[in-house]
Write a protein that binds this DNA or RNA. Structure first.
Length: 198
DNA sequence: GCGACAG
DNA sequence: ATCTTGTCGC
């Protein structure tokens, strides 16, 4: 499909990024504004939507041709560019991304990549598993990767730290149900993608 | 080689 | 993710 040198190259970028992650405690009580980002498609045209709630409420949208295919493990190459464009000028304390954070083969999911590149707190929330094993511990299910807890599964969703947050922040967020900002970003992006050619 | 595989 | 109607079930 792709060249034989692109994937190895991207792998190195991911390893480098994962080494820059800081798992510090954010404390959701200090979060004034939370944003959720998602992307919907119409062929090769993507529509990125960022929905923010809290002190600063706003919606940002960017539509454009996406020049990279979806390759498991490399989602950031397809969606991070257009999402980051939609984030320009947007202020927030926490960014929620549709996809994984540390729960990735190289601890470098899209939430982690964006968190490190933008130097902002991020948490990844995915609808299915990519890496790690689900292990029950008491009343909850954790995602274990290389013997380390890299996330938690609540209902059909997987939550994992992206950057500048810790597992406690993720556990607290996961206990509040699927984030409204993500639900709205998902709904609006799909709506705009569908209308983009009708 | 075989199975797995975010959106 | 997207292509797609109705239908089974809580």
């Amino acid at each position: 499909m792709e060249s034989d040198f692109l994937i190895p190259f991207l792998k190195r970028i991911q390893v480098l990024i994962s080494e820059q992650v800081r798992l510090s405690h954010l404390g959701l009580e200090n979060v004034r504004t939370t944003c959720g980002a998602d992307v919907a498609y119409r062929g090769d045209v993507g529509v990125a939507v960022v929905v923010c709630k809290g002190d600063e409420e706003r919606v940002s949208t960017v539509k454009g041709k996406v020049g990279f295919p979806y390759i498991p493990g490399y989602l950031f190459m397809r969606e991070a560019p257009i999402i980051m464009k939609a984030l320009e000028g947007v202020r927030f304390d926490l960014l929620l991304v549709d996809g994984h954070g540390l729960a990735h083969p190289r601890r470098s999911g899209i939430a982690t990549v964006m968190g490190v590149l933008l130097k902002v707190p991020t948490i990844g929330i995915a609808k299915s598993r990519l890496a790690g094993e689900v292990v029950k511990e008491g009343d909850r299910e954790y995602l274990l990767l290389q013997g380390e807890r890299v996330g938690v599964k609540v209902g059909r969703y997987y939550y994992s730290p992206g950057n500048l947050v810790d597992l406690d922040d993720v556990l607290e967020l996961s206990g509040k149900g699927y984030p409204e900002v993500l639900r709205e970003a998902d709904r609006l992006s799909k709506k705009l993608a569908k209308e983009s050619d009708e």
